[in-house]
């Protein structure tokens, strides 16, 4: 995943906070925020993940004119097609999204400062380690790590995100 321009906007922060059920006014009320220690609206701690909205190639968003692998007339519209198209994709999420077993295993954020409306970030993702583990409930687990550095317009590092995806050999037993 590479994001050339991730504009952090107040309405997006509001919608994101709503979706996680967080009614803290620091995420939407400018007048309230002005009187707090942070002094302005900030984004919730996991907001950087919404940079996916600004990744033009993000695999897990339906795109106009392209087949989508979710259901329509049939249970899956385009699994084979999507898999082929994204075979050069580096990000684990892109590969795992089309299979039954691709799941998010870990997510870590290191905050150098907190995001505010008006920030315009870039996000550069590099692959990390890969490893395997045997599990009773899902067979062989293949883990892969990626590290994304979010920088502001001055090139300052704002958030470092470390993501671990896992592809399971079989569907996890419930």
């Amino acid at each position: 995943m590479a994001v050339d321009r991730f504009p952090v906007e107040a309405s997006h922060i509001l919608m994101f906070a709503r979706s996680i059920g967080d009614t803290n006014p620091i995420y939407y009320d400018e007048a309230h925020a002005a009187g707090t220690e942070v002094g302005s609206i900030i984004a919730p701690p996991t907001f950087a993940q919404a940079s996916a909205q600004f990744d033009p190639d993000y695999f897990l968003r339906p795109k106009a004119g392209q087949k989508w692998f979710g259901s329509g007339a049939t249970p899956s519209g385009a699994m084979a097609v999507e898999k082929e198209e994204t075979s050069d994709a580096k990000g684990d999420e892109k590969k795992s999204g089309s299979s039954a077993g691709g799941l998010h295993a870990e997510q870590h954020f290191t905050y150098h400062r907190h995001l505010q409306p008006g920030d315009v970030l870039t996000g550069e993702t590099k692959p990390g380690e890969n490893w395997e583990k045997e599990s009773k409930r899902a067979g062989v687990l293949k883990f892969s790590e990626s590290i994304t550095e979010y920088r502001d317009e001055n090139g300052e590092l704002v958030i470092t995100a470390r993501s671990v995806g896992v592809v399971t050999e079989k569907v996890i037993e419930q």
């Binding site: 967080d22 803290n24 620091i26 707090t36 220690e37 942070v38 900030i42 919730p44 701690p45 996991t46 799941l103 998010h104 295993a105 870990e106 997510q107 870590h108 954020f109 290191t110 905050y111 907190h114 470390r162």
Partner: peptide, 17 residues
């Protein structure tokens, strides 16, 4: 976590699902 530690106070937050 932020209700406990306050707004803008986190330096790290990481989890396993």
């Amino acid at each position: 976590v932020t209700n406990y530690v306050g707004d803008g106070r986190l330096t790290y937050y990481g989890v396993r699902f």
